[in-house]
């Protein structure tokens, strides 16, 4: 079976499941979902939250340190998104700003959110390099 056929079949299976779960989802699915969520959470506690060294630094910084530094990182991040999103720069910028606004205002702000923003890895690397050079 060639790759294209395999992909087509996978998509078909997804569509079938979607039709099957059109507007009514069996209770067995929700039981299964609950089980999966609880399993993931049970494994979470043994997993490191942040793997990369530089990320850990930023995490610590954000958790215990300077809000200004966090804002700087966010600002750098926004500039980066703006230049990368050539197709719809205004929309992308608006969206990222809304995300940042959300993160800063919301009571559930935590560093993992920040680390999930696309492109933040490069921003953190650049920042760390600059800090190391000083």
């Amino acid at each position: 079976m060639d790759e294209l056929e395999k992909l087509r079949q996978e998509q078909q299976e997804k569509n079938d499941r979607n039709s099957q779960y059109g507007q009514s989802v069996p209770s067995s699915y929700f039981e299964n979902l609950e089980r999966r969520i609880l399993n993931q959470v049970a494994n979470l506690e043994t997993e490191p939250i942040i793997e990369v060294k530089s990320k850990r630094k930023i995490y610590t910084l954000l958790r215990y340190g300077s809000a200004a530094a966090a804002l700087l990182i966010l600002f750098l991040g926004i500039s980066k998104f703006h230049t990368e999103s050539i197709e719809t720069p205004e929309y992308a910028l608006l969206n990222e700003m809304e995300q940042v606004d959300y993160l800063l205002k919301s009571e559930e702000f935590y560093a993992e959110d920040l680390l999930e923003i696309d492109g933040i890895d490069e921003v953190l690397s650049e920042l760390e390099q600059q800090l190391n050079n000083k």
């Binding site: 499941r17 993931q40 959470v41 979470l44 559930e108």
Partner: peptide, 20 residues
């Protein structure tokens, strides 16, 4: 929109709740 995507997103939501 789709069940597949909703399944993924819901799991992420609950993990964020747990962490946060």
């Amino acid at each position: 929109g789709t069940h597949e995507d909703a399944d993924d997103v819901v799991q992420n939501v609950f993990i964020k709740i747990f962490k946060g």
